[in-house]
Amino acid sequence: MDLSLITFVQILVAVIAIICLMVANAVVMVYVERKVAGFIQRRPGPYEVGPWGTIQAICDSMKLLAKQIFVPANVDLVLFFLAPVLAFFPVLLLFLPIPFGPYLTPWKTPDGLVLILAFAGFGVLSNLLAGWASNNKYGVLGAARAVSQSIAYEIPLMLALMAVVFQAGSLNLSVIVEKQGWVPWEWNIVTQPLAFFIYLICLVAETNRAPFDLPEAESELTAGFHTEYSGMGFALFFLSEYANMLLVSFICATFFLGGYKGPIIDGFWWTIIKAYAVMVFIVWIRWTFPRVRFDQLLNINWKWLLPLGLLNLWITAIIIKVVN
């Protein structure tokens, strides 16, 4: 891995672009989420601010910026303010190895998946710190849930992605996309349906979204680990939640849905369309299902997804061995 000056400048530019992408994504997704929720519930959703309520999300973020940050008594101040920052910044790095387009990869590294899986654990650390530092019993319960959930679901997630890696023979995300064709039946979703299914469940669980939103289950824990956060602290958690969603959707598009390849001209627009389709799917299931219980959540993982993932990996390995 040689970090020449050009690579360094490239990464710097990419990080700035990714920050813009994350913020823009949060604004768009807040709007999309509220609109989809509204339409599913037979109401118009945001409507008043701007044409069809399009400026609503920006106004909300302005409100969050201007709000006072309330610090409860006896909190651990360093960790209390560090946690939202930690939630936000590691996500930046995770976007680096993703091939957005044929010529648009922030950092072409041969082992991009390792980087993603290594840094994905940072998000849960911030949740733990936030819950612990805010001196709140709901926060601690939420943090404990967040840790055990994230750690549990990282394993089948990794197994599902490894099956694709076996098939492509590379950890490089660009190579994985290149090995897929442009028509849907040449995507990995056809050759690896089980891995896709496992990944889809893990994706919802890893991003703490309903029906697996136990760390912030509002009917049980009010708001879980970010109960005591207000203003910008809450906004950063919010931003990182949507950034995480975007990340797992991009990975889903890259690994299973053919990445930047599409029927007309290959390009980043296909990645974005596919990723946002996955995001809308996540939003759709959030507004449809009730929440699972915590022991059920872990049972799904350890008793079903993990054996299925191992089985899938095993079958993939045998087929690759036989074919070659």
Binding site: A37, Q41, R42, A210, P211, S219, W287, T288, F289, P290
Partner: peptide, 16 residues
């Protein structure tokens, strides 16, 4: 009740 269990949408259908 479904809201307690985490499903947000049914209460709005019930309200219709």
């Amino acid at each position: 009740f479904v809201l307690d269990l985490g499903g947000v949408t049914p209460i709005l259908y019930a309200f219709e």
